[in-house]
Amino acid sequence: MNIRINAMFSTLTVTFLAVSFIFAPAPVSGADTNAGVEREDKTNERDISEQLQRLEKKMADFRSMRTEFTQEKNLAVFRNKIVLKGRIYVQRPNRVAWHVDKPVKYSVLITDKFIRQWDEDTDKVQEISLSGNPVFRIVLKQMTAWFSGSFSSLQEEYHVRILQQQPFIIEFAPKDRNFAKKVIKSVTVTFREDERYLSQITIRELSGDVTTILFENTQLNVPIDERYFRIEHRV
């Protein structure tokens, strides 16, 4: 039993750090099996690609971003929703810092070299190196794609639909080969009026759970204090 607990804890540490990221994809292998879903209208696909590239261009001029967020999780089995509040800092090309302030304090930094996290309960900093860890590298790529607006790259892993033009709303549904397909039904991204950044992300899970992340007081190209990327203790 001790061996099993040991194994479970090791697994959990890794799981909590990285694998559980919402957008974690599978290492790409094999082909999608659902031919009906795969047979996309090529014209439509081209149109979507053009739209995504247009949005990417609009978002391309920011080197840094900071925003406050409110994350609401509606669990299918409970009447109450869980609300998390915090801040996100993005520095291109590849640093994302995610700080939860309420109802708990938690910080995670994702770079191209490592993932590092801290939480107030354990008061410990844990780190996973990405060297020799291709799955985590893909996770990082996906995370930065969502927050940096590299949406074209997501077309390989997601079916994309444009739901609305003003404000612009896009829906991403994981393809069969995407690891996320086991959990996620769709991810809907809503843009701000000026389309320079996101105003909302909604994740619908197969279980019926729905998570909405609202971005508020978003500032682009502002200096970000280096301390927000240092996960040593609370910042």
Partner: peptide, 12 residues
Amino acid sequence: SVVCMNHMGVKI
């Protein structure tokens, strides 16, 4: 009934 999540709200 218990649901456990990580700090980013991802269900474990």
